[in-house]
Design a binder for these strands. Structure first.
Length: 389
RNA sequence: GGGUAGGUACCCAAGUGGCCAACGGGGGCAGACUGUAAAUCUGCUGGCUUUGCCUUCAGUGGUUCGAAUCCACUCCUGCCCA
């Protein structure tokens, strides 16, 4: 085991705040494995690179010999964390949440070590909590404290609703820390408030308060907002390699440095052409979540399709056709083949605007019946193409 | 409980009897330019068997030749008072 100082040095990397470093040093100095908590709300079935930032930090703790406590917020997910939200979340049923939780933990183990991970569900204690205890818990926190939060303050100022159950969220997350006796809790920088509530509750319970460690938030593919499923700007850990690769290639240059640091845990190589750097980023990421082989394949495929623009050689999904199909018919069939649900209007729009191309020729008239040929390449949009069977 | 302002497409928001599938912005998609990046310019953005038809403006019912727009009731939200 490394010394406390050495550990601290490693753990401090790529964090936003640590409350406090002194406390963390003291805990590490005892030489006993720490219980490091991360709460996740399974509001969607997939874990993405944004979640992975925290998971990677946990992995770092594990490699230093510490114990991870992964709290599945099956109960809190039904409330929805109000952090960073400008409106109330739509409620999820417990069945949905449990189904999500299964794929969630599965994917979390792409990063975490199973043997040093304890998985618990907070419904185990909250579902059984009597109302008297709920009230007692609420009595410890003031409304003023809760309303200090930016999210609530903004919503109040704007006259949008804040429902009472939402202000319970930080209290519940804090109580989780008490129940699992967390030594450290980590989360995104938007979790600061929630994690600090945990410290207060632990202190009141006569426990040593947890260290609060926050990590930078990873912006999504749009480069502006936090990566999230609901904004559809995410890269899922279990996405097929080529999809993962393609999504990473579409991020803005300015974002690369952060992605290198948070997704790969490396510094971005200094004097690489941005295009090369991005390819490296995408390859390394595919390598981590799939394999080196998959990464090579993606890179090759990418070069073939886009750098050399040689769709003819690329490996593409095959689409059955008949000679009398119109451009519209075949485009529709192709999208269907790829499992994409587009309305006729969308397809018509893609056609008339020149997105759909047969061997590089724009098919702008939906009703035309081109001379289809086996092996011909039909480009559908920026990312998708098919080959006639 | 009383008063008052509201509920329009993915989001914000205009429209207050026919010219409304509904101005404008954001977001999204596509084309040009590129490094499938960013920026910029242009176009599109309810559905369909698309020169036309169908379903939309919280819900239900009504007035009218004709309603997102008028009336009644219902549901929901903000604000003020209690």
């Amino acid at each position: 085991m490394l010394s406390a100082d050495q550990q601290l040095e490693i753990l401090k990397r790529a964090t936003v705040t640590i409350h406090s470093e002194k406390e963390l040093a003291a805990k590490l100095a005892r030489g006993k494995p720490l219980r490091v908590k991360l709460g996740v709300d399974p509001t969607s079935p997939d874990i993405h690179l944004g979640h992975a930032v925290a998971l990677r930090k946990l992995r770092q703790f594990q490699e230093l010999g510490h114990q991870v406590v992964l709290i599945i917020g099956d109960f809190t997910a039904m409330i929805g964390d109000p952090s960073g939200r400008s409106s109330t979340r739509p409620p999820l049923t417990h069945e949905q949440v449990l189904a999500n939780a299964r794929t969630y933990t599965e994917q979390a183990f792409l990063v975490l070590e199973r043997s040093r991970t304890e998985v618990v569900f907070n419904g185990d204690w909250f579902a059984k909590m009597p109302f008297t205890e709920v009230l007692a818990l609420n009595a410890r926190v003031t409304l003023q404290q809760m309303l200090q939060r930016e999210d609530f303050k903004n919503r109040l100022a704007q006259g949008t609703e804040v429902r009472l159950h939402e202000i319970q969220y930080p209290i519940m997350q804090g109580w989780d820390s008490v129940v699992v006796r967390a030594d450290v809790e980590i989360g995104g920088s938007d979790q600061l408030f929630n994690i600090l509530v945990g410290r207060d509750l632990q202190k009141e319970e006569g426990m040593e308060p947890q260290v609060c460690m926050t990590l930078p938030l990873l912006e999504g593919l749009d480069g502006v907002k936090k990566m999230s499923k609901s904004l559809n700007n995410y890269v899922g850990l279990s996405e097929p390699p080529r999809e993962m690769f393609g999504k990473l290639m579409s991020i803005a240059d300015a974002l690369m440095e952060k992605y290198f640091l948070l997704v790969l845990g490396e510094a971005m190589p200094a004097d690489l052409h941005p295009m090369q750097a991005k390819k490296l980023l995408a390859s390394r990421c595919v390598e981590i979540y799939h394999s080196a082989e998959a990464a090579r394949d993606c890179l090759e495929d990418w070069d073939l399709r886009f750098s050399k623009r040689d769709l003819a050689q690329a490996e593409l999904p095959l689409v059955p056709w008949t000679a009398e199909m119109t451009a519209f018919d075949l485009a529709k069939a192709s999208f269907a083949q790829l499992g994409a649900v587009l309305s006729g209007g969308d397809i018509r729009r893609l056609l008339t605007q020149g997105s759909i191309q047969l061997n590089g020729e724009k098919l702008t008239d939906p009703k035309q019946v081109p001379a289809w040929q086996a092996g011909a390449v039909l480009k559908l949009d920026k990312k998708r193409s098919v080959r006639l069977a």
